[in-house]
């Protein structure tokens, strides 16, 4: 899996968590400041990512942006 594939899947998961129409999601998009998600929302996203990619994510520490999650998944899968 390359970065684009992981990014696209994570983007779908994030959009699914949001109630609004698909916003412009980039690697730099910050969950809290750009998407105003609360920590519960972020954990729901993290849970879906665990299921989708079959990885374990112990905490949300250091996972502030979409790119952080993409890199985390890529490292786990490397």
């Amino acid at each position: 899996m390359n970065q684009t594939e992981v990014f696209n899947q994570i983007k779908d998961i994030v959009i699914d968590q949001l109630d609004t129409d698909a916003p412009d999601i980039q690697l730099t998009t910050n969950f809290k400041s750009d998407l105003s998600l609360d920590s519960l929302d972020v954990f729901e996203i993290v849970d879906k990512i665990e299921d989708t990619f079959d990885v374990e994510i112990e905490s949300d520490e250091g996972l502030a942006t979409v790119g952080d999650l993409v890199n985390y998944v890529l490292e786990q899968k490397a």
Partner: peptide
């Protein structure tokens, strides 16, 4: 807020929701 529409979407993904 949109907490309830999010819950609706999670419980029943086929529902159309708006807040």
């Amino acid at each position: 807020g949109d907490a309830l529409s999010k819950l609706a979407h999670k419980n029943h993904p086929d529902l159309a929701t708006a807040h």
